[in-house]
């Protein structure tokens, strides 16, 4: 891929951190302004793509995510649990609840249960990007450059 020390450094130091923050911010503000889990997840995904193109393992705070399937599962679970939980308290699936809590210093914060659903979406999107990069990218790349395998 692209080999450049400076680029590597740039991506490593700045882009990852800034990108992650932007992604989280976009996800959070989604309920009231353009953004949301999808956009957030895609932004973080784009960061990983850049890391990949620079020849690096996709990492967050230098910790590589080794098992994107698991992240995928967890993301789905989070979304599903948010969907199904109201059933246990007598509500309809996906029914949203709004809690208003007062935090010291910050003040009154409105927490909407559907935000958790959005987090699930966020994780799934991130995991999918990671899986595509790992499989079609890294592992597939190892095969692509050889001649046809003739098997099958």
């Amino acid at each position: 891929m692209i080999k450049s020390k400076i680029l590597e450094e740039l991506i490593d130091r700045w882009l990852t951190k800034v990108g992650t923050l932007v992604a989280i911010f976009i996800t959070f503000r989604g309920h009231n302004a353009p953004g949301g889990g999808f956009a957030g997840g895609l932004i973080l995904g784009a960061v990983f793509v850049l890391q990949y193109l620079a020849g690096q393992q996709p990492t967050i705070r230098r910790k590589p995510i080794l098992n994107p399937e698991r992240l995928l599962g967890l993301g789905l679970l989070l979304a599903l649990v948010t969907t199904a939980t109201p059933l246990f308290v007598g509500g309809a699936p996906l029914e949203s609840y709004i809690w208003s809590i007062t935090l010291p210093q910050i003040g009154k914060v409105k927490i909407v249960s559907s935000t958790f659903f959005d987090f699930g979406v966020f994780f799934v999107v991130v995991a999918v990007v990671l899986m595509v990069l790992t499989f079609l990218g890294t592992r597939g790349g190892a095969i692509s450059h050889e001649p046809t395998d003739g098997a099958g």
Binding site: E69, R70, L74, L76, L77, L80, T83, A84, A92, P93
Partner: peptide, 23 residues
């Protein structure tokens, strides 16, 4: 009516779980 959604949700939860549990 609360049960109607379960044939969709249960398999999906199972699918998600099985991505975490790979045995």
């Amino acid at each position: 009516s609360s049960l109607v959604a379960l044939p969709i949700l249960i398999p999906l939860v199972a699918a998600a779980l099985m991505l975490v549990v790979r045995n």
